[in-house]
């Protein structure tokens, strides 16, 4: 697994981004790009070309599902959201999401899922 991969963390909660970054840093990743809404996320995606996107669903301006529709087939997107309905999870898969973690999550679940996605 390439630990040098650039990871885009999209979540409107700075708290959530910090928790995720901490988990990722603990697992040996070091290149992070952050954004707090969907529009910013699309812009950062274009500019930074990350190798993995951790994507929140409920975000202001443009929500995660819209982001996914645009970039879901171009890059590996792991959805991390507190929305737990099957229908939504199903929909993200249709738009190309490679995984779905329901918040609250634990450290191991996030690492396992990322390892699976990247290998």
């Amino acid at each position: 697994m390439d630990k040098n991969i650039k990871i885009l963390i999209a979540d409107d909660s700075a708290f959530m981004r910090k928790v995720l970054k901490d988990i990722l840093a603990g697992a040996g990743f070091s290149k992070f790009v952050e954004c707090g809404d969907g529009k910013e996320c699309l812009a950062k995606y274009e500019a930074e070309k990350p190798g993995l996107v951790l994507l929140d669903i409920i975000m202001p301006v443009v929500d995660g599902m819209e982001v996914l529709k645009k970039i879901g087939t171009a890059v590996k997107v792991l959805v991390i959201s507190a929305v737990g309905q099957d229908k939504i999870i199903e929909e993200t898969k249709q738009h190309g999401a490679v995984g779905y973690i329901v918040k609250p999550f634990d450290r191991k679940k996030v690492i396992d899922e990322i390892t699976k996605v990247l290998s």
Partner: peptide, 30 residues
């Protein structure tokens, strides 16, 4: 195990707020 919400089944996204894809190039990195 998903959270047990009893919420009515409906899409979460709000189509009003979507950005047309050709806007993408105009966006700058914040």
């Amino acid at each position: 195990e998903k959270p047990a919400t009893q919420r009515a089944q409906k899409p979460v996204e709000d189509t009003e707020t979507s950005v047309p894809s050709d806007d993408l190039s105009a966006l700058s990195v914040a």
